[in-house]
Write a protein that binds this DNA or RNA. Structure first.
Lengths: 347, 347
DNA sequence: TTGTAGGCGTTATCAA
DNA sequence: TTGATAACGCCTACAA
C-alpha cells in the first residue's frame, strides 16, 4: 500500500491538494513551473496514487473477471497468459476464477467477482446452460459479460471461439487421409462445443462414405475424479480394441483435456501410437511438441481469441449505450491443423 | 460494478445510511426488527457493497500480487491454482504478473502491482539478484514481500521452497541406481536453485566414486527465444552423443522447463528414452504422466508451498509489528521422487 | 436504538 | 493559474 498522499505533499509544498493532483495529471490549467516542482517532489517521495481511491472516484475498478473451467489445467495457461497480456495493454487487471466444470462452483466464482467490483466478465461456461439466468441478469444490469471458447451458450452478447464444426471436420478428414477409417471420437458430456465438433466428424465420415458407428462416439464425464475419468476411459477403449471386428485405428479427442489423458491411457495399455491408433486432438500449447510421439493437434488461435475477448469487453465497459441495443456478433475464428508424429502413419 | 448503494436504500427505507450499514453488518446497536427489514430489502435489490469504498476505508485492498517467471508455462499452472485456492480461502484475491525471466519486465510487474494497491507480494524472482534493492525497499516500507520457489535470494523475509540440494542428490542417485553413470545435468543460467541442485548432483557422483565431467554440466539461457533455446540445447546434446568416449546415458533436468524441452529435442534426434538416455526432471504436473514415455520427476509439494506462502504473507499483512523485528525463516520442504518410464531401464 | 458527521485519497467543478 | 469544496460509497465515533 502506498504511504504518501496528495494531502501530505500539498502540505509540504504549500499548495492545495487540487493543484498537486492536477499537476501530476498534467492538467493544462497548471503552469509548467509548478508541474515540475510537484512531479519532482512526487518522485522523490515515491508517490503512488492510491488506486482504490481513484477507482472509487471514477466508478470503475479497471479489473476484469475471468472464469474458465480450470486454472491448473496446463492447457489453459496459454489462454490465461494471452488474456493477461491484452488486459495489461489496456491497463486492466485480471481476476481469474475457475468453475471446475461445476455449476455450483461457477456460481460462487461469479459472486466473488461481483464482490470484487469487477467491470466485466469473460467466461467459458461450465456447461451449456450453467448459470444462464444469473449471467443474463448481470449482463443486463450490472456489468457486461462475454463468452469465449465454449460459445454454445444462450446469452445475447459477443462470443469468441473457433469454428468447431470445421475443426471437427478437418481433424477427422486428416485421419481419413492417412488411411484410418475406424475413428473413435471422444466427447465431453454437456459441452456444447464438442457437439459441433462431433457434427464435423460425422460430416467428414459421410463425405468419405464411412459408416457411422455409434460405439465410436465416447462420452466422458468431466465431473468425475481424475481416477474415475481415467479408468472409465481406459475401459471403454480396451473394450473397443478387443473386439477385432470393430477395433478402431484412430482417435480424435475433441478437447485438450480428453486428448492428453488418452495419451497416458494408451501408453498404459501398451497401444502403439500412431501405428495401432493414430491420435489427433485439440490443444493450444507448445507442450504437444514435447510429447513423444509429438501430438498432432487442432490449434486454436489463442492470442486472437484473447485479444478479441478483451477488446470487445472493454468496448462494452466503456460504452455507455444500453447493451440491449447492441447488435452482438459471434466470432468463429479459424483453427489450424498441426501435424506431428501421432498421425504420421506408415503408408 | 454494483449499482444500488447504501444511500439509495436508506432513502427508500426512510432510514439513515449508518443504520442501514450497521444493520447489514449485524451491529448489536440495531434492533432485530430493523435488521430484518434492511437485510430483506438488500437481498431484494441485490445489494453488493462496493469493495473499493470498503477497502479504501479500511486501508487495504485484500489483494495479493504474485510474480513468477511465466504464466503461460504449463508447469506453473498448478502453483497458480494452489496459490489461488489458498488466497480465496482467506478472502484475498490474486493479481498475477510474469517476469519472463527478465529483470526489466519484473521491474514493471512490481510497479504495476504497487499501482494496484496490493497488500503484499509473493515472488519467484527472475534471477538471484534481480530487483533486489527495489524489493528490499518495498518490503521495508510499503508492503511485505515473500520469496517462493527460487529461494536463493538475498532478502530478509520468509522464503518457501524445496530442499534443492537434497532433490538434486536424490534425482542423480536414482539414475546411478538404475545403472547410469554418465549423466548430463541441465542448469539454468543465473538461477540460484539450479546451483544447489547441481551441488546435490556433484555430491551424488562423489558418493558413488564417479568422476565429474565438466562437459556434462550444460547451462541454458532462459532469455533466449524458444527457437534459440531449443537449437542451442539440441546442438549441445548432439555433440556430446557423437563422441562415443564420453557419450552420456542419462539426463537430469533441473527445472521443469528444461526437462520438457529436452524431451521434444530427444525425440527429434531420434534418441530412445530411456534406453539410450534415461531422463529425470523437475515437474509439478500431472502431465508428466501423459508423456510417452511417462516422465520420472522430482515432485515439489506445490500445495504446501502455496499454502505456506499465502499464510506467511497474510501473517505479515495483518501483523502491525515492525517487520525488521521479525525472525524470518526459510522453509525448505521435502521433494519426493516419482519414478515412471523414462528411468525404467532394462537391467 | 437510531441518526449525524467526518474522513479514507482521489478527481472535478467552480470560484478566486 | 490556483484553491476551496463537494463528491465517490463506505464505515464508525459520537451525539441524540
Amino acid at each position: 500500500m502506498s504511504k504518501v498522499t496528495l494531502k501530505e505533499m500539498a502540505k509540504v509544498l504549500n499548495m492545495s491538494v487540487s493543484t498537486v493532483s492536477k499537476a501530476l495529471n498534467d492538467s493544462h490549467e497548471i503552469s509548467d513551473a509548478t508541474k515540475e516542482i510537484v512531479k519532482k517532489f512526487a518522485k522523490e517521495r515515491n508517490y503512488q496514487p492510491n488506486p482504490l481511491a481513484k477507482y472509487l472516484k471514477l466508478g470503475r475498478s479497471n479489473s476484469i473477471g475471468v472464469i474458465l473451467p480450470s486454472i491448473g489445467n496446463p492447457f489453459h495457461s496459454q489462454i490465461i497468459e494471452s488474456l493477461h497480456n491484452y488486459a495489461s495493454l489496456h491497463n486492466f487487471n485480471l481476476i481469474i476464477m475457475q468453475s471446475k466444470d461445476s455449476e455450483e462452483i461457477e456460481t460462487k466464482a461469479i459472486q466473488t467477482l461481483l464482490n470484487q467490483g469487477i467491470d466485466g466478465i469473460i467466461i467459458s461456461p461450465a456447461h451449456e446452460t450453467s448459470n444462464i439466468a444469473l449471467l443474463k441478469k448481470i449482463h443486463e444490469s450490472t456489468c457486461p459479460v462475454i463468452i469465449f471458447d465454449r460459445i454454445n451458450y444462450d446469452l445475447d452478447t459477443y462470443k469468441i471461439g473457433v469454428n468447431n464444426f470445421q475443426s471437427g471436420l478437418d481433424a477427422t478428414a486428416e485421419l481419413i487421409k492417412v488411411g484410418r477409417r475406424r475413428i473413435i471420437i471422444l466427447c465431453g458430456k454437456n459441452i456444447g462445443v464438442t457437439k459441433e465438433r462431433l457434427a464435423g466428424y460425422e460430416e467428414a465420415l459421410k463425405k468419405n462414405d464411412i459408416e457411422l458407428i455409434q460405439e465410436y462416439i465416447v462420452y466422458c464425464n468431466y465431473n468425475n475424479s481424475f481416477e474415475d475419468f481415467d479408468n472409465d476411459l481406459k475401459e471403454k477403449i480396451a473394450v473397443l480394441m478387443k473386439d477385432s471386428s470393430i477395433a478402431p485405428n484412430a482417435i480424435f479427442g475433441t478437447t485438450d483435456t480428453l486428448t492428453t489423458r488418452v495419451l497416458g491411457i494408451l501408453a498404459d495399455l501398451k497401444i502403439q501410437v500412431p501405428n495401432e491408433l493414430a491420435v489427433i486432438g485439440f490443444a493450444n500449447t507448445e507442450i504437444a511438441n514435447s510429447l513423444n510421439p509429438a501430438l498432432s493437434t487442432i490449434r486454436q488461435p489463442t492470442a486472437e481469441i484473447a485479444a478479441l475477448s478483451v477488446e470487445m469487453l472493454i468496448k462494452l465497459i466503456t460504452n455507455k449505450k444500453n447493451r440491449s441495443q447492441i447488435d452482438f456478433q459471434e466470432f468463429k475464428l479459424d483453427s489450424s491443423i498441426q501435424l506431428r508424429k501421432s498421425t504420421d502413419v506408415d503408408s
